[in-house]
Amino acid sequence: MNIENTKAQMKKGVLEFCILSVLSSGDQYPSEIIEKMKEAKLIVVEGTLYPLLMRLKNDGLLSYRWEESLSGPPRKYYKLTPVGKQYLKELKTTWTELVNAVNKTIEKR
């Protein structure tokens, strides 16, 4: 089993949750999301984000609107849909439970 692969799988699982969390604080366009994710070292390369955003949007968790940019092409600002907000809430609960469970497992060792 490849350790890098496992790590990536772990990160991937929480990635969607993180994107939704980032967007919960307000509308953002990909570069801003990326910036925050990079700060948290959750993603390294930007390319990863686009397919994820696409999927979340297709699943109805996200919506977007176009906004003109002063310097460059028009930007896509992403926003949580009500479904998305609900989804995020559930994920948050799951996450807290999971973290607790995991921490407990680690501490017991």
Binding site: P30, S31, P51, M54, N58, S69, G72, P73, R75, K76
Partner: peptide, 27 residues
């Protein structure tokens, strides 16, 4: 990249997003 998303539904959209981002960075 386009080849990677061959089977994805929103391929064109993803590509557009990626291209837009690249354009932004190049600018």
């Amino acid at each position: 990249i386009k080849g990677y998303f061959k089977d994805s539904e929103g391929r064109d959209e993803i590509m557009n997003d990626i291209e837009a981002r690249i354009a932004e960075m190049l600018q």
